[in-house]
Computed example of a mutant assay.
Amino acid sequence: MTATYIHLSAAVWALLAGTSQLLGQKGTPLHRAVGWSWMIAMVVVAVSSFWLTGLMDVLWGYSPIHLLSIWTLICVVASIAAARKGNIRRHKAYAAGAFFGVVGAAIGTLMPGRLIHEWIFGAV
């Protein structure tokens, strides 16, 4: 259950920080600081997901949603690399892609049978 709480805590921060990054001014010290915390949260969300298995056992307990975790790790690395090279257009594209992936995953947690669905709507 610890992995679940680590995953959820990082995911909530990723959603909040990601939203503020999209809406806030870019290139400021605050954007950089929140951006680094967001990137770390995204890595924690992606890595911790590999301890959360069994929802749809396609391959050793893993499901297609775990492909999103791999993609998220790729996006984080690519986004940081692009920003360091000054390619802000690519940085924004990879960061936004990772963020909208998290939003999609968050929406997926509302499916019946998922833990968040049970917390919000009660066991069905």
Score class of each variant (00 low, 15 high):
D57A: 11
L23Q: 12
I120S: 00
G122I: 00
T72C: 04
L110R: 01
A14H: 06
W13N: 08
I116Y: 04
A46M: 07
D57H: 10
H31T: 09
L15N: 03
Q21N: 02
A14C: 11
R89E: 15
W60P: 00
P112V: 01
T4H: 07
M42I: 12
L67F: 12
W119A: 00
Q21M: 05
L52Y: 12
S20W: 13
Q25R: 10
G61R: 07
V45L: 03
W71N: 00
K26D: 05
T4D: 07
S69C: 05
Q25G: 08
Y5T: 12
F99K: 00
T19F: 15
A93G: 07
L23I: 13
A83Q: 08
A33H: 14
S20P: 00
A95T: 13
V47M: 08
A17Y: 05
P112F: 01
G35T: 14
R89W: 14
V58G: 08
G61P: 12
P64C: 10
A98T: 03
W51C: 10
G108R: 05
F99M: 06
V43C: 10
M56Q: 14
H31I: 07
L115S: 11
Y5V: 13
T72S: 06
L15Q: 03
L8Q: 07
S48W: 02
S20A: 13
F99Y: 15
W38Q: 05
A123S: 15
V77I: 09
A95G: 10
L59W: 13
W71L: 13
G24Q: 09
H91A: 03
M56V: 15
A78R: 13
G104Y: 05
I6R: 01
P29H: 07
L8S: 11
K85I: 03
R90W: 14
F99Q: 01
Y5S: 06
L30E: 12
F99P: 01
I80L: 15
R32D: 06
R114L: 00
K26I: 04
V76K: 05
L73Y: 04
L16D: 01
H7W: 07
L68T: 11
G104Q: 01
R84G: 06
Y94K: 01
S37F: 08
F121A: 00
E118A: 04
G113S: 08
I40R: 08
L15M: 14
T53F: 05
A46R: 02
A3H: 10
Q21F: 00
I120R: 00
G24H: 08
H7I: 11
L16P: 04
F100M: 07
P29K: 05
S48A: 15
V44N: 03
A105M: 02
G61A: 12
G86T: 11
L67P: 02
S69I: 04
I88Y: 14
I65L: 14
S63I: 11
H91R: 04
G97I: 09
I88Q: 12
G113R: 00
Y94F: 14
H66S: 03
L23P: 11
W38R: 02
R84W: 13
M56D: 14
Y94V: 02
H117T: 01
V12Y: 08
L73E: 10
R114N: 05
I65D: 04
A93S: 11
H91T: 05
R84T: 09
G86C: 09
M56H: 15
